[in-house]
Write a protein that binds this DNA or RNA. Structure first.
Lengths: 150, 150
DNA sequence: AAATAATGGTTGCTTTTGTAACTATCAAGC
DNA sequence: GCTTGATAGTTACAAAAGCAACCATTATTT
């Protein structure tokens, strides 16, 4: 494991570090929604968006969460099979489907949101409040999200 | 797009932000190694590790980069097909294969490493030096990497 | 020394994702 | 009103990843 003369280390390469950190932190949480409700990551995200922002169409969710429409389509089907949501054809535009959570979906969403908050707080404990908020803001910038107004 | 009364926003959820940022920053760089050399992400990582740390076995790379052995196995086969590396059976342990870069692999690795450095500098320009180094250290901590000694 | 366990690596099968083509509906131009 | 083009969503096919079973070899146990 002798190091070469070159100076550039993968551990200074931001995309690499981001991938490792993302994988590491996602893993433990994905175990929760997988074990409790048999959800996939995209399904959890769609569920969360519906619970958080109310009834939305598939493409609205896609725009907000940057998920491709085929992934959303499959996630919606899966959530429908679980009776977590229902579709309602829009009256004015019959191409669109309004998605709304059913009681089972709302319950799962509330449960998982609480778990997500707890997990987030646990992650935050590794940092000072200043480090934490700087970290979040830096990631927002890298993800090209509009800065949160808080 | 009316917000619910609840307070927790996905944009404060670290795993979500990490995934978005990772995807966003990986995308542009993956276009480079894909277009120039037809490499997949795992292949690029294996190539880089060999270029950076010298001859290694598959499982050594896997341990360093946290990549599963089947992914490595297939990446090594692909790199071998491209004549980017060769395998040498270890004398003392005939199960192990020492992987070493061939000239074509070294050239590709040097080229891509330079591109990675340039891209990294470009990303770093979005931050002050203090923010940048804090970001890297935070990600290392989240990824459970031993802190870099620099 | 034989049996058992552990390690390095590959392969086959299944699940998941990505890409592109497709249907259906709506919007715009002429 | 018809043609063209855009949008919402689904589906089919291909690429990639995950998982488990599988050789071959080495280490360990008795």
């Amino acid at each position: 494991m002798v190091e070469k003369n070159d100076h550039f280390d993968l551990r200074e390469f931001l995309p690499y570090l981001l991938n490792l950190a993302a994988e590491e932190t996602s893993l433990r949480f994905s175990a929760i929604y997988r074990e409790r409700y048999g959800l996939l990551r995209t399904e959890w995200r769609v569920l969360f968006h519906l619970g958080r922002y109310g009834d939305l169409s598939a493409s609205e969710i896609g725009a907000m969460a940057k998920i491709h429409k085929t992934k959303i389509s499959r996630a919606v089907s899966a959530l429908e099979r679980k009776h977590f949501l229902k579709r309602t054809a829009s009256a004015k535009d019959r191409r669109r489907e309004i998605l709304s959570l059913l009681p089972a979906g709302q319950a799962a969403c509330a449960d998982l949101t609480a778990a997500a908050e707890a997990y987030n707080r646990e992650l935050a404990r590794q940092f000072t409040p200043e480090e934490w908020s700087l970290l979040l803001r830096s990631l927002e910038r890298l993800a090209h999200l509009p800065p949160s107004k808080e």
